[in-house]
Nucleic acid binder design. Structure first.
Lengths: 217, 217
DNA sequence: TGTCAGCATTGATGTGGATCAAGCCGATGG
DNA sequence: CCATCGGCTTGATCCACATCAATGCTGACA
């Protein structure tokens, strides 16, 4: 099926490939099927900040907007499901449920962005790293439908550089702080990517977040 | 009209007053009529980060959520227009236009949040201050329906402390950087709050933002 | 089996902004 | 007219993180 003809089609990207550049014309919206992608902004001198982390089922693009506002990059190999924008917008006009669902998702993203702003503005490097590991750990647990019990183990899907872009740090600082958490027994590393968390509550203490509120805050 | 009875009612707050605390029960949604309010998150040890700046017509609260996720504080005197949450949600279910409008607004806020993340994660103190002044200047120009010509002059609605919370800085650093911009002729101060911008493009150069893209980026 | 490339770690040093600590200014009230 | 108080400014010092610079590890490929 030709992707120029059909309303819905699939595209795949290899790890590291750019899906779209900020400012490019974008006549589709999409949703991640498998893999991880990032939304980043770049300043003229090259400073970079990740502003969104896209996981399976996350939405890409904005109805009513013809131009990409951010760089979208595949972090792992990615499969995404695309809809041509115009038909999608028409469908959205006819089907209120879609707009409502999209509103839900966008509000969740906004909450995540605000949590992220606290991290960027006020947390120390160590707290940032601990927070990121906790976030990834929770995601991982969710995806595998496990309870968030103790002794989690999972693969870090991000390079040190991607973590730095996420956290507003340099990759050297990321590396040093991970080493420090390892030294202090908060995490255990096997190789560079596989992480085990012997005591999740201990990790949470390191994040600086309110712990007693739990997931509800 | 009793506000416990009616679906729609007005409330006023004085500058500095807290509208609602994070975690409080919240059975209304609202919209700012006049004044400015802030959304902030606080860590246990008191570190604070502003995560939203609410201006006239901005929306407060989240349909389907019964608990406030952030502290809401009146920065200036504020009048807001409240709707009891349940009736509002029912109305939203019956009126697709409302959900669509809310989606629009939420997407705009998400874009603003992402711009803000770049600022928090990667900009220098000087760039942060310049960015904030540019943002407030544009807002002010919009409100007064002026073109964004040169030689703007307006009242800064935020205290140094509120600016610090917005920017992820201390109030001392905010003060120093404003003094520096003044010394360098980028801004002119009359008193502590009134700012004149002799050359808006010069200010934009200080923000670190892509200038050639203009408002579209 | 060497070597090369791409991540990651670690060390030495520098610096931007935080912290601690005095004052300053303009409004408010006795 | 002075006292006071909250917001602001400015100075001295400190430190967390950036920067610059080697070096290590692992896997791909000739």
């Amino acid at each position: 099926m030709d992707q120029l003809e059909s309303v819905k089609y699939y595209r795949t990207f290899e790890a590291g490939q750019t899906v779209i550049w900020s400012g490019d014309r974008m006549d589709f919206v999409a949703s991640i099927v498998t893999g991880i992608a990032s939304l980043t902004q770049t300043m003229e001198d090259g400073r970079r900040q990740m502003v969104g982390l896209l996981l399976p089922s996350d939405f890409i693009g904005r109805p009513g907007r013809a131009t990409a506002a951010y760089d979208v990059t595949a972090i792992s190999d990615v499969v995404m499901c695309c809809f041509r924008r115009k038909p999608f917008e028409e469908l959205m006009g006819r089907t209120p449920r879609i707009a409502q669902r999209l509103l839900e998702m966008t509000l969740d993203e906004l909450d995540a962005a605000r949590e992220w702003m606290l991290l960027l503005g006020r947390k120390t490097a160590r707290e940032k790293i601990a927070s990121l590991i906790a976030i990834v750990a929770r995601r991982d647990a969710e995806l595998r439908l496990r309870s968030t019990g103790n002794d989690l183990s999972f693969e870090l899907p991000l390079t040190r550089e991607a973590m730095a872009d996420y956290l507003g740090l340099t990759l050297e600082t990321v590396s040093r702080q991970i080493s420090a958490l390892k030294r202090d027994g908060v995490v255990v590393l096997e190789g560079k990517r596989r992480i085990t968390i012997p005591d999740f509550d201990r990790l949470l203490e390191e994040t600086g977040d309110d712990t007693d509120g739990g997931l509800l805050v």
